[in-house]
């Protein structure tokens, strides 16, 4: 420690009653020497952090926007898929009607052919035709292809609906991200205030730091979560029921 700080060349600046007091003062000056650069470090860290925060906040907002765009694209595909499935279902239904009508016609032909045969014994060509027609009808009867295709289409439609419903996760995740962004922005405003105090010595806002002002309700739910558990819905249902009973 440089004694010039405490002992002027012209006259002593400070007179110490004893060595202990002089030692304590030296320690204090030494401490100041160490603190000043530390404070400068703190100030530049705050400045750097407060410069980075808006970027982080913007990045989060971009993530939200991009996931929403992607979700909308998925929804577009799902909607187009559902429309095509519905169209296939309608076509299949029409095919079923055509087959049923053909079956009815074939049955009528077979019955009228059989009614027109009078001779017993060997099969006449008419009887053979009737048998072939009957065989055709029973072939159609035993076909399980159509119901099975219908089932596949129904399940595919149900799956695409389930995928669409699962996309609710985007809304829930975006609320969580918005909540984080909000926290970051709060930290930013605190840092900016701290920086002002460092640079300008302006402490007029300290009194307002803990001001009991009601914050405006955010446009997100801090506790938003994606869960298939029905516990929260059950609680809501119970409350709705109670209100309905008390009316």
């Amino acid at each position: 420690m440089d004694n010039s700080l405490i002992q002027s060349t012209q006259s002593p600046v400070v007179q110490f009653p004893n060595d202990t007091a002089q030692g304590a003062f030296k320690d204090f000056i030494h401490l100041l020497h160490e603190i000043v650069p530390l404070l400068e470090n703190v100030r530049s860290s705050i400045e750097e952090s407060s410069n980075r925060i808006p970027k982080a906040s913007m990045q989060l907002s971009k993530v939200n926007q991009e996931t929403e765009n992607a979700t909308v694209e998925i929804l577009n595909v799902l909607e187009a898929m559902t429309a095509r499935i519905s169209s296939a279902e309608a076509q299949l239904h029409r095919l079923k009607d055509i087959i049923q009508n053909s079956k009815n016609s074939a049955k009528r032909i077979a019955e009228s052919l059989l009614a027109s045969t009078s001779e017993a014994g060997a099969y006449s060509s008419t009887e053979l035709t009737a048998l072939v027609v009957n065989e055709f009808i029973s072939g159609i009867d035993s076909s399980e292809a159509i119901p099975s295709i219908e089932e596949v289409l129904r399940k595919t439609k149900e799956d695409s609906m389930n995928i669409a419903m699962a996309l609710q996760v985007q809304d829930i995740a975006s609320q969580q991200i918005a909540s984080v962004a909000h926290t970051i922005e709060s930290v930013e405003s605190q840092l900016v205030r701290a920086l002002n105090r460092f640079e300008n010595g302006d402490t007029s806002d300290i009194a307002n730091d803990n001001a009991d002002e009601p914050a405006p309700e955010p446009a997100f739910d801090v506790e938003a979560r994606y869960t298939r558990s029905e516990e929260r819905q059950d609680i809501a249902d119970e409350i709705v029921k109670q209100f309905a009973t008390n009316k």
Binding site: L75, Q168, S174
Partner: peptide, 14 residues
């Protein structure tokens, strides 16, 4: 009514 476009689409589709 929803500020999320995704949610509006999902509810409308449902």
């Amino acid at each position: 009514v929803d500020d999320s476009l995704t949610m509006r689409r999902i509810v409308v589709n449902a």
